[in-house]
Measured scan of single mutants.
Amino acid sequence: KILMCPEHETERINMYCELCRRPVCHLCKLGGNHANHRVTTMSSA
């Protein structure tokens, strides 16, 4: 099953924010609420 980002509906979730303990997409990481947070790949989470 492909998970889609709730904030960016057209983007797949492919990362996990370690600080917030939630999955995020690349747009969340690049310029969103998680820009300065440490993220890992979903396969490592």
Rank of each mutant, 00 (worst) to 15 (best):
C25L: 00
E11P: 00
G31W: 02
M42E: 15
R21G: 08
P23K: 07
N36V: 05
R12Q: 15
R38Y: 12
N14Q: 13
A35K: 09
G31T: 12
P6A: 09
S44P: 13
K1M: 04
H34F: 01
A45G: 13
H34N: 02
N36L: 08
H8M: 00
N14G: 06
H8K: 01
P6G: 07
V24I: 15
P23M: 05
R12A: 04
C5F: 00
L30T: 15
T41W: 04
L3F: 10
C20Q: 02
A45D: 14
A45L: 06
V24N: 02
L27T: 15
M4I: 09
E9S: 14
V39W: 07
M15Q: 04
C17L: 00
H34I: 01
R21Q: 12
R12V: 11
M42L: 11
L19S: 14
R21C: 08
K29P: 10
G31V: 09
R38A: 13
C20Y: 01
C5W: 00
A35H: 06
P23I: 03
K1E: 06
K29I: 07
C5Q: 00
S43N: 10
E7Y: 03
S44A: 13
M15V: 03
P23V: 09
P23E: 13
L19T: 15
V39F: 08
C25I: 00
P6K: 13
L3D: 14
H37S: 05
E7Q: 10
L27F: 06
H34M: 02
N14E: 14
L3V: 10
V24Q: 02
H37L: 04
R38F: 07
N14T: 15
N36H: 10
V39E: 13
Y16H: 15
G31Q: 11
L27N: 12
S43D: 09
G32Y: 03
G31M: 06
I13M: 14
C5G: 01
R21V: 12
H34P: 03
R22C: 08
G31E: 08
L30N: 14
T41E: 14
K1N: 08
L3R: 08
R12E: 11
Y16L: 10
M4L: 06
R38S: 13
L19A: 15
Y16K: 06
N14L: 13
S44Y: 05
C17W: 00
E7T: 10
C5K: 01
R12W: 04
K1H: 04
N33Y: 06
H37K: 06
N36C: 11
E18H: 03
P6W: 03
L27K: 12
S43L: 06
T41V: 08
V24M: 07
H26N: 05
L27W: 05
E18Q: 09
A35D: 15
T10D: 07
I2M: 09
S44Q: 10
N33R: 09
L30Q: 14
V39R: 09
T40P: 12
E9R: 09
K29V: 12
Y16F: 10
C20I: 00
C25K: 01
H34A: 03
S43I: 04
L19K: 14
C25H: 01
H8R: 00
T41N: 04
S43M: 07
L30C: 11
V39Y: 06
H26S: 12
H8G: 01
M42A: 15
K29D: 15
K29F: 12
C28A: 01
S43P: 15
G32L: 07
I2D: 12
K29S: 12
M4C: 09
T40D: 13
C28P: 01
R38M: 12
L27H: 13
R38N: 12
V24C: 08
M4F: 15
K1R: 04
A35G: 12
A45N: 02
H34T: 03
I2F: 12
G31F: 05
C17N: 00
P6S: 10
E18L: 05
V39N: 14
S43G: 11
H37F: 02
N33L: 11
S43H: 09
T40E: 10
C28T: 01
R22N: 04
R38W: 12
T40V: 11
S43T: 08
C25F: 01
T10I: 10
N33M: 11
C20W: 00
E7N: 06
T10N: 04
T10R: 10
P23C: 05
T41K: 12
E7D: 14
G32N: 05
L30G: 14
N33T: 14
H34V: 02
P6Y: 05
L19R: 14
L3T: 13
M42S: 14
C20G: 01
T41R: 08
I2Q: 08
C5P: 00
